[in-house]
Amino acid sequence: MISIKGLRKQYVTKERQIIAVDDLDLDIKEGEIFGVIGYSGAGKSTFIRLINRLEEPSGGSVTIGDKDITRLKKNDLRIARQDIGMVFQHFNLLWSRTVAENIAFPLEIAGMSKTDRKQRVQELIDLVGLTGREDAYPSELSGGQKQRVGIARSLANKPKLLLCDEATSALDPETTTSILDLLVDINEKMGLTIILITHEMQVIRKICHRVAVMEEGKVVEMGDVLDVFLHPKQQITKKFVSQVMGNTEEEDAIPSMLQDNPEGKLIKLQFIGESANKALISQLAKQFAIDINIIQGKITNTKAGSYGTLFVQITGEDAEIDRAILYVQTKTSVELEVILNV
């Protein structure tokens, strides 16, 4: 649905030129929630503004549907923008307008009649869960409520694409969750394509289907969220994954495990997708004459299922341990690795 080719943005200052977005190629599918993660200064904020040309690209193209956004004339661009919603980190509501009037703003711009407007605004208010707050001013709302107004406003003209610029970065964790749930809800109900940028891996983990990691204006890693979580390749990606997972460099911890657990086998279990939901550990303990001691681990949920790593120590007869290992390797989707044979 969205095809980005060779997208570039450079700023020229007196001393030097800064390349904010460097030759970016991306394809985003219809109905997808696509996340872009990076530290501040990575160019992600510029990138999302290039999509609806709040920033003019220095080169390359952005095609949404069959429209090449980068080639549109000023007036056509204005009309195209009515089909692209945008949600901002700091909400950017008009303080002089009530909730209902803020949401009606894009409808006024699109030239909708007053009666239609009123009806549509009410639908949107109900959709984002602000029923009863129609006549409140933004200053009377909490951060989460303001962002709900922002989302309702961005959806007013029934866009096909929603751009989220750090939409949850100014919110506390609990409110973030409720806003993310709302975005997923909208994505599923309306089949809306969402591109979001963030510096929080939590956001990517909770709602994104695919993720691109940006560093110095380039996409350094991209893929399905689960793949990226499981097999982060770049150093920066590993750092982001560790935001959610704790330390991903588990090998560092092995010497200390050895000291504390000098018998049996030390085993690393990697859970991918649904298998984390099975009661694997108790199953093994019941079926085989072994003892399982959980040493450390972390399991987390992503949009595509659960994922995590568990370090366990198995003690018992060697033959029995081997049978248990074989069972895990053949009967489940859990990846097993014997780290240490004592």
Partner: peptide, 8 residues
């Protein structure tokens, strides 16, 4: 910026 983004 928000107003521009909705095509004002």
């Amino acid at each position: 910026e928000a107003a521009k983004s909705i095509g004002a």
